[in-house]
Amino acid sequence: MMRIGVNFFSAIGRRVIEGVWRLGYVTRFLMLTLLRSCTSLTRPGLVIREIYSSGVLSLIIIAVSGLFVGMVLGFQGYETLKTYGSEQSLGVLVALSLVRELGPVVAALLFASRAGSAITAEIGLMKTTEQLKALEMMAIDPIARIVAPRFWGGVISMPLLAAIFSVMGVFGGYLVGVVLIGVDDGAFWSQMQAAVDVRHDVVNGFIKSCVFGFAVTTIALFEGYDAPPTAEGVSRATTRTVVTSSLTILALDFVLTAFMFKGV
């Protein structure tokens, strides 16, 4: 009985110490990545390659998901707004939900599972097959050559993907609301333009997507870099990337929303 209690508390203690240790390590890792980004500036080809693999290759899933999310919003919003006789506000509902919340958040969740997991698996495998060590042997800094370009590729791609997601969503809402159901075309756009404020809604959504891109890419890179060099280690690291980044995105979204939209 006594032993079980002691084991229970020591397990909690181990997890807390492990968490703090990882937090410190990830901070140092991030600082190091930022400090050694000069290579990415002098060799933009490296960053462009990473924008391709995390941005361009995610384009299809982001655009299609955005379109469908917007179309569903169009249907559901119409059903609800019809009850209050304000179908004209469908454009406002679709645009505000997408620009403020769904665009950045859903795009970031998709980005974490599409591009984040790929980054983790790639770097984890490089570590497992000792390619990172080989680079060090050749006096090439793996953080400057491998990590930093992927970091900037992700940070640049994410806001663009979120913007594309929102635009596709608004287009999907337009397709369902105006083309399919028959909400008035002029009212749809004019009410949307009257309600969506550039500084308050579009810029805040953009800031959110930048923060999410930063967080997801950092987590993905760190999990890959920190993965145990075994097949099982890489697979667990990939899972951890998706789980940790999803939770981080949702928590950050709450904090950012509380700061940005505190009921003005």
């Binding site: 924008i51 941005g55 384009l59 993907l161 594309i164 929102s166």
Partner: peptide, 9 residues
């Protein structure tokens, strides 16, 4: 991709 993203913004 970058052009599409900026156009979306």
């Amino acid at each position: 991709f970058v052009a599409a993203g900026l156009a979306a913004l």
